[in-house]
Design a protein around this nucleic acid. Sequence first.
DNA 1: AAATAATTCAAACGTTCGTTTGAATTTTGA
DNA 2: TCAAAATTCAAACGAACGTTTGAATTATTT
Lengths: 237, 237
Amino acid sequence: MTKAQNAQIIKDTRERILDAAELMFMQHGYDGTSMRTVTGEAGVNLAAANYHFGSKEALMQAVLRRRLDVINRERLRLLDEAEAKAGGKALKPSVIIDCFFGTLLRVAADQKAGGETFLRLLGRTSTDPSNFIRTFMSSEYADVLERYKQAMFLSLPDVPKAEIVWRFHFMLGATSYAIAGTDALQLVTDWQVDEASAAQDENLLPRLMSFLLGGLRAPLPKIETSIEQAASAPFVK
Amino acid sequence: MTKAQNAQIIKDTRERILDAAELMFMQHGYDGTSMRTVTGEAGVNLAAANYHFGSKEALMQAVLRRRLDVINRERLRLLDEAEAKAGGKALKPSVIIDCFFGTLLRVAADQKAGGETFLRLLGRTSTDPSNFIRTFMSSEYADVLERYKQAMFLSLPDVPKAEIVWRFHFMLGATSYAIAGTDALQLVTDWQVDEASAAQDENLLPRLMSFLLGGLRAPLPKIETSIEQAASAPFVK
DNA sequence: AAATAATTCAAACGTTCGTTTGAATTTTGA
DNA sequence: TCAAAATTCAAACGAACGTTTGAATTATTT
């Protein structure tokens, strides 16, 4: 077996560590996962992790970046494409929402292995209190979020920007929780104990999209301190 | 100063540990918080935590139970009250949602100290992968969730139960994420870096309630494998 | 006031953590 | 082919972890 063939079948150390870290971080969280657990799962020497990534924090960032770069690049590409097709006219909110949240679920489901694992890791990472994770995530998302925020503002010119941002925030939450697949409260008692269900459920996407769009289109709340009042634009769209 | 007076002003060791643990667990997560951090913040001896609570896991459970018991009892009481007032007729979904999610935000905001801290801890705990936390949370919520699920089923007799459960799941997610107040993606750039904003925002409740009800009332998705099809009841309520 | 129980305290237990080291081994490039 | 670079490896580092101990102190009961 040549070296090239071997490289195709046996993943190199760097990638094995990334795969193992993705799985362990998802199952036990960042602080709950040790470098020994990761390298043990990967079947490599303990020192290899620090050799290839420098530190545990840098390893976590590499795990997130590997998938997020692909997803966010696709998000930008699809939004560009949709705007080009619309030819100057404002996009429908449902199109924007699908470009953002639909892409996440589709790309992750498309990836051969680890796609579902990453989805669940991402869901759990979104509420992680660690400072270095928050800093990394915000810089990783900065461009995409700014782009989508502007698209939403153009799409819903009559809705106060603060309300749009809030609803986008709520949509992020519903999605993060859904893909985390924890169901800590065991609300869905039908799910298996091996908890492999939510993120890989093919019906998750249509169900989630319906819910998100419903929330986005809901009547605006009556906010006490706001100048722009719901009276002038009581409904989104 | 008598002993009774002293007990009112200077909280006893047990309560000081609970307060400190609530704050530290919220800021740094369960695994990211050490017993030394907790007892240091509380100003008590390290051994006091194990003396009063037995273990770190038991301490975490005591932190959660102290507030959740109050909130869930209130949730059951309000639902009983609403059903009694309705006199046999089915409740409106908005009433049920307000009893569940509104109570959470109101009770937590009402409590003198730690109310907002607990809200954010709860949001972050909801996606925690730790097994003992998940087990504890599911048993702590079992009664309330079963009660509310049945109320929702009665309130929306034409909607497939699976869809109701899914939407409740999405609502839990949006709420958890919102009260966690992390904003890891820095979507809301207006928020301060000290991140003290979301959970104590008095406008959060009306905004969240609008979004949740909109999502709940959204048109049902077209599910491929389902026998009960959206065609017969395409809209919730 | 004496005896008993509850609590606090400093110190230490053994374990696990992230990271580093320097030699051994493999891969690369001339 | 052979020196140089890259990688793997066993071993160890000091620090931090949850928990325990037994004596000292405080609070309660008799």
